[in-house]
Simulated assay, not measured.
Amino acid sequence: MENYTFNSFTLQLDGLKLSEASMYPVFFAFLFCYLFIIIGNLGIIVLVFIDRGLHTPMYLLFCNLAFNDILGNSIMVPRLLISILGHRSEILISYYECVIQAFISHMFATTAQTILMIMSFDRYMAICNPLRYTVIMTNKMLLKLTVSAWGVAFVLVGILLGLTIRLSRCRTLIANPCCDNASLFKLSCESVVINNIYGITFTVVLSVASVGSTVLTYTMIIVVCLTSKSKSLNSKALKTCSTHLIVYIVMFTSGKVGIAFHRYPEYAEQRKLCLILFHVIPGTLNPVIYGLQSKEIRRFLFKFLPSKKVLSS
Results as ranks from 00 to 15, higher is better:
1 M>F: 01
6 F>L: 08
7 N>C: 04
9 F>T: 08
9 F>K: 10
18 L>P: 15
19 S>V: 11
20 E>A: 04
21 A>I: 04
26 V>G: 10
26 V>F: 14
27 F>T: 15
28 F>L: 03
33 C>Y: 12
34 Y>K: 00
39 I>Q: 03
42 L>F: 09
43 G>I: 02
51 D>Q: 09
54 L>D: 05
60 L>Q: 14
62 F>K: 04
67 F>E: 07
67 F>A: 03
68 N>Q: 04
72 G>S: 03
72 G>L: 01
73 N>L: 13
75 I>Q: 06
77 V>F: 04
77 V>H: 05
78 P>I: 04
79 R>K: 08
81 L>Q: 13
82 I>T: 05
84 I>E: 12
86 G>E: 07
86 G>H: 12
87 H>E: 12
89 S>G: 15
90 E>I: 11
92 L>H: 07
93 I>L: 15
94 S>C: 08
96 Y>I: 01
97 E>K: 14
97 E>S: 12
98 C>S: 15
98 C>F: 14
98 C>H: 14
101 Q>I: 07
104 I>S: 01
110 T>S: 14
111 T>W: 01
115 I>W: 00
118 I>A: 06
118 I>M: 05
121 F>D: 12
124 Y>C: 10
127 I>N: 04
129 N>H: 09
133 Y>R: 12
136 I>A: 01
138 T>H: 05
138 T>V: 14
140 K>L: 13
143 L>M: 13
145 L>D: 00
146 T>K: 06
146 T>I: 09
147 V>R: 02
148 S>M: 13
148 S>P: 12
149 A>G: 15
152 V>C: 11
152 V>G: 11
152 V>W: 07
153 A>D: 13
154 F>Q: 07
154 F>S: 07
155 V>S: 11
159 I>K: 00
161 L>M: 11
165 I>Y: 04
166 R>V: 08
169 R>Q: 11
172 T>F: 15
172 T>W: 12
173 L>N: 09
175 A>M: 12
184 L>T: 08
186 K>R: 08
188 S>Q: 11
190 E>N: 13
193 V>D: 12
199 G>I: 02
202 F>H: 06
203 T>H: 04
208 V>S: 05
212 G>H: 11
215 V>D: 05
216 L>D: 00
218 Y>K: 00
220 M>R: 06
221 I>W: 05
223 V>H: 07
229 K>N: 11
230 S>V: 07
231 K>A: 08
231 K>Y: 08
236 K>I: 06
236 K>G: 06
245 L>R: 01
245 L>C: 04
246 I>R: 00
249 I>T: 00
251 M>K: 01
253 T>M: 03
258 G>P: 02
258 G>I: 01
259 I>W: 12
264 Y>P: 09
264 Y>G: 10
270 Q>W: 13
270 Q>G: 03
270 Q>S: 14
273 L>Q: 15
273 L>W: 11
274 C>Y: 09
278 F>C: 07
280 V>Q: 06
286 N>H: 08
287 P>Y: 03
294 S>F: 06
294 S>P: 05
295 K>P: 03
296 E>G: 15
300 F>V: 14
301 L>I: 10
301 L>C: 11
305 L>Q: 06
307 S>Q: 04
310 V>P: 13
